[in-house]
Amino acid sequence: MTVPPPPWRRSPSPRRRAEKPLLSRDLVVKTALDLLAAEGFEAVSMRRIAQQLETGPASLYAHVANKEELDELMLDAVLGDVPVPQPDPANWAEQVKEQVRHQVRAMVAYPGIAKVAWNTPVPVTPNSLRQGEAMLAILRAGGLDLKQAVFAGDALSLYAKAYAYEASSWTFGDYDEAEVAERGRQMADYMRSLPAGAFPNLLLSGQFFTGETSKDRFEFALAMFVGGLQSLVRA
């Protein structure tokens, strides 16, 4: 038998649905980055972001002009996690290397964001400018003139983006590992079929192009580049 509640007891109100967070540019960018980290760059679209936020795509355009602007805002947010050191003339070479390492780590943490960096030759968002100025300041503290620092900063940025882009491609399957392995075997067989002694160094080089040597290759290139800058300063 059901007993009704006494009249002085208030009936429980129907459970209200939790209110959605207020839509904002920051929330749109954060949602896009969450998708990027979970599923890769190709999964990020205005429609997917709207679905995640339980709204319509049109409502996003009040905060972000288009997908291109969203891409730049995502890149800027990622670069915002990269620290900016105070230039140290006595330790500038290591600061340069560490700055590139930080940038690569930030881009690899969000696979595909390096593609945005490639497609934005001269980024002018706040954190992009902050990173560019920081690198130039470190290079100039080391003794390079402005022209040398600009050229060096540009080359280091290109290398960081290229390395991060390749790493991201492996993470989200732009390369099929089975196909790559099969192509590797075919290339090895092909090279061995060529006239003896024709390409002795290339035949031995494959052992250095593996996932295990990836970090070593990165650090070697970075050391050679910065070593060259040190020689330039000494000269």
Rank of each mutant, 00 (worst) to 15 (best):
G153N: 04
A106K: 01
A18T: 11
L35A: 04
L146R: 15
L73H: 02
L232N: 14
E42F: 10
V84C: 09
N127V: 03
R185T: 15
G40H: 00
Q51L: 09
V108I: 07
R130I: 05
Q86R: 15
L79K: 01
F172V: 08
L36M: 06
T213R: 14
L73K: 02
R192I: 10
F172R: 04
F220V: 10
S11E: 14
A152C: 07
A117P: 04
D145C: 13
S157M: 05
V84G: 10
L202C: 12
S169K: 15
R17K: 13
E19Y: 07
R140V: 12
A235F: 15
V233Q: 14
V226K: 01
L222S: 00
V124T: 13
W8A: 12
V150P: 04
V100H: 02
S45L: 05
D154L: 08
A221Q: 10
S169P: 13
S205A: 11
F209L: 11
K115H: 09
R16P: 08
F220S: 11
Q186V: 14
Q51M: 11
M46S: 11
L36R: 00
N66A: 09
V3H: 07
A221Y: 09
L158V: 12
V44D: 01
P195H: 04
P5F: 09
G132L: 00
V100G: 02
